[in-house]
Amino acid sequence: MIRRLILAATTALLLAAPADVQAQSKELLLFNWTNYMPPALLKRFEAETGIKVTLDTYDTNESMLAKLQAGGSGYDLVVPTGPTVKQMIHDGLLLKSDVQSMPNYKNIRAPFDKPEFDPAREYSAPYMWGTTGIAYDTAIAKEKLTDSWKEIFEPRPEFAGKLAMLSDMGEVFAAAAFYLGFDRCTDNPEQGQAILELLQRQKPAVKVYSASGTVDRMASGEVAMHQAWNGAFHRAQAKRATLAYIYPREGTNLWADNFVIPKGARNIDNAKLFINFMLDPKNAGEASNFTGYNNTITGSEALLTDALKADAAVNTPANMMGRLNLSRECPKTNLDLREKVWTRLQR
């Protein structure tokens, strides 16, 4: 009823609004994370195909989703993380992109060719992947740290008051769940309580909860320990060589971002062209060198900078692979629990 009222009330306005411009075949509207694609690469794509790329950026999956929720945002290509891809498929927000039939599909490295969120790669193509771990300054540590989440949740005195956590309730909750040996998607209230108590005990030692400016915060020495994404660590370490990265032995988060075509896209062919372009080893390698994150394309390894090749935080060694848990979509009951924990932690 109200919807109809609103519709009626704005009919006049809609009539006054400019008519949709006819789909232009030489354009691509890309919606990506900030600083997540080298401008030079986009320029090369434009030069090779004559398609003009317009890039807009976002900072969380949720803010991107808010715009796409009802479809028709106008973007041709967006880059959500795995669980969000699954949710978008479920909500009918995506168009099939037939990645399997693309010439460069063969370059996708296992297991990224058959991810749990889109097993047949009908809707999505992989871009970067990364892990969430502990970055710390070895110059501050009095002795070598163990490879456990304990180091950040029950920090040694030299790190108390000098550590930062990501202000992302999913990441913080998951890390605490890994440490306590719970399922990261737990909806058990007692486990939730245990996680809350752990975080409350840790809080006095936390200097800041923030997922922004992490590179600078680590590189400048403002904090000596950070729950961090590995690409951010890589970039910070380039400026502060004493930083080290821990893959916690209790397990940690492996996430992967993917290209998808949302419903309402008008330049679908261009979007597919771009996806295929990005599955080329040369281009994927160039993107990795820019972002500091690893990609999923066979043949790109040789093209990485020496610093990236040598960084075990980015080039995960085989013996660490077992510690990585691909992030997955948690049930609503878990969302409610972790929100309750997060709110009470910050109340």
Partner: peptide, 15 residues
């Protein structure tokens, strides 16, 4: 430092 939540942050978190 996002250590204590305010109304604005709480509302934003819900959306």
């Amino acid at each position: 430092g996002a250590k204590s939540m305010m109304i604005g942050g709480l509302i934003q978190q819900q959306f």
